[in-house]
């Protein structure tokens, strides 16, 4: 059975840490980092990467368009 696996790449220096992607994610993948970027914002990152399904909801709501979304259909082991 094929399982969809996704991943996101966040442009850390452009992220403003608004947190809209965190609530938009249906599988609770994203969280804001404890560390800050060059502008002092707690940037978004994949806290729970295994749960990502590559639905792109986070990227769609991101006001600064800093998220790229990748998706593969992986065979279940």
């Amino acid at each position: 059975m094929a399982k969809v696996k996704g991943a996101i790449k966040v442009d850390v220096e452009k992220c403003k840490g608004c947190g809209l992607c965190v609530v938009a994610c249906p599988s609770k993948v994203i969280d804001l980092a404890r560390e800050v970027n060059g502008k002092g914002y707690n940037y978004a990152y994949m806290a729970n990467p295994d749960a990502c399904i590559g639905c792109a909801n986070c990227a769609i709501v991101c006001p600064d368009s800093v998220i790229e979304v990748y998706k593969v259909k992986a065979e279940m082991a």
Partner: peptide, 25 residues
């Protein structure tokens, strides 16, 4: 997973690379 062939969503080219001055969110 993060490879060019698996890309499903990225910033459109019509948007420039400038960082927007708007407040977060």
């Amino acid at each position: 997973i993060i490879k060019d062939e698996n890309l499903v969503y990225k910033k459109t080219k019509v948007l420039t690379d400038n960082v927007m001055h708007y407040c977060p969110g």
